[in-house]
């Protein structure tokens, strides 16, 4: 653990917070602190100014016109997970929240912060190994290292770090919108454009400008989400990140065909992974295990594996098939 002097500033308003961070090159927002403080201690990030946004009036949870929900960026994971409107309208999102981290962490962690959480890649977090995400151009230690838990989808030669969030998996399936306020004003970013794949710039994980603050997450109305589910497979039952997780919301019509489907995966991608190919393969087709398997195959057609994580592909496919089979049974 390394300690270094740091300036702490408690922002009293959104404008103040944005101004403070955007005017200082080595600054960062501090929300729940459940990731940022760890990374500070591990010497992975070295901001010299932390701008605390916990006092900002962003803990709300409110309905929006069309039946959707707007979640303030500082709403705590535990509060959102148990909010009746979330439990009723998006049960899979509530489950994803409750399966993440631990109750203590969920009480601290904010929704906006969760969108910005960093990978658990050991090489990224050790503060010293070559890592293109932490130190661009230094190389990727995970490619040839211990990479059992690393991503098989959305990877590049520069980075195979897995995105760790659970709730973000639900949110990509739900087509959420990330609302921000930055030095250049307000912005709304569709969630799938918010999470950037590593490509050649693994250090850039989202399109936020320096000083641009997430203020809310909009989750649109989606009737089929009322039966949504989230299942998480992992190495231990609590306090553990996913090996594979599946968010699903599916409606099967009277003829037995898939009428609507939202499917997203955690633990396998460099970003929270919306399974578009699988969705397209299934919409309008009979909801049978054979078709689920074919859809899962399609989703992982371009998967890139290492000897240590190749199991993940079969594991994830079977998790998809089982999950969708259980939904239909």
């Amino acid at each position: 653990m390394t300690m270094r002097p740091i300036t702490f500033f408690r922002a009293g308003s959104i404008d103040e917070a944005v101004a403070a961070v955007s005017s200082h090159p080595d600054s960062a927002f501090l929300a729940g602190g459940t990731t940022e403080i760890d990374l500070l201690r591990l010497n992975v990030v070295q901001p010299t100014l932390l701008v605390d946004v916990n006092d900002l009036p962003l803990t709300y949870l409110e309905d929006v016109d069309d039946g959707g929900v707007r979640i303030g960026a500082m709403a705590r994971m535990s509060d959102v997970a148990r909010a009746p409107r979330i439990v009723e309208r998006y049960p899979g999102m509530s489950q994803a929240l409750l399966l993440g981290a631990s109750e203590q962490l969920r009480n601290m962690a904010s929704m906006g912060g969760n969108m910005c959480q960093r990978t658990r890649c050991s090489y990224f977090r050790d503060g010293q190994s070559p890592c293109n995400k932490r130190e661009p151009g230094s190389g990727c230690s995970a490619l040839t290292g211990i990479n059992r838990g690393h991503a098989v989808l959305g990877t590049s030669e520069q980075c195979i770090a897995t995105h760790p969030s659970d709730v973000a998996v639900a949110l990509v399936a739900l087509d959420a919108m990330i609302r921000t306020i930055g030095p250049d004003g307000t912005n709304a970013i569709p969630i799938e454009r918010f999470f950037l794949r590593p490509a050649d710039t693994p250090s850039i994980e989202h399109p936020l400008a320096h000083g641009e603050l997430i203020v809310a997450i909009d989750v649109p109305a989606l009737p089929v989400a009322r039966t949504s589910r989230y299942v998480k497979h992992r190495d231990r039952a609590s306090y553990e990140f996913a090996l594979v997780s599946v968010f699903s919301a599916m409606r099967v019509d009277d003829a037995g065909n898939v009428a609507e489907l939202r499917l997203a995966l955690g633990g396998v991608g460099t970003v929270p992974w919306r399974a578009h190919r699988a969705e397209e393969a299934l919409i309008g087709r009979p909801a049978t295990p054979e078709n689920f398997a074919a859809a899962a195959d399609a989703e992982f057609a371009d998967a890139r594996t290492t000897p240590m994580n190749e199991f993940m592909v079969t594991f994830a496919k079977r998790a998809i098939v089982r999950e969708l089979s259980e939904v239909t049974s």
Binding site: S122, G145, D235
Partner: peptide
């Protein structure tokens, strides 16, 4: 079922936190 201290080929301990070293909880 759960625990193993793992070194990589250079002798770095890869299970240096309780997230990576999967000490089970009561739920397991």
């Amino acid at each position: 079922l759960f625990e193993e201290a793992v070194y990589d080929a250079d002798g770095n301990l890869m299970t240096g936190t309780l997230v990576d070293y999967t000490l089970p909880t009561a739920a397991d």
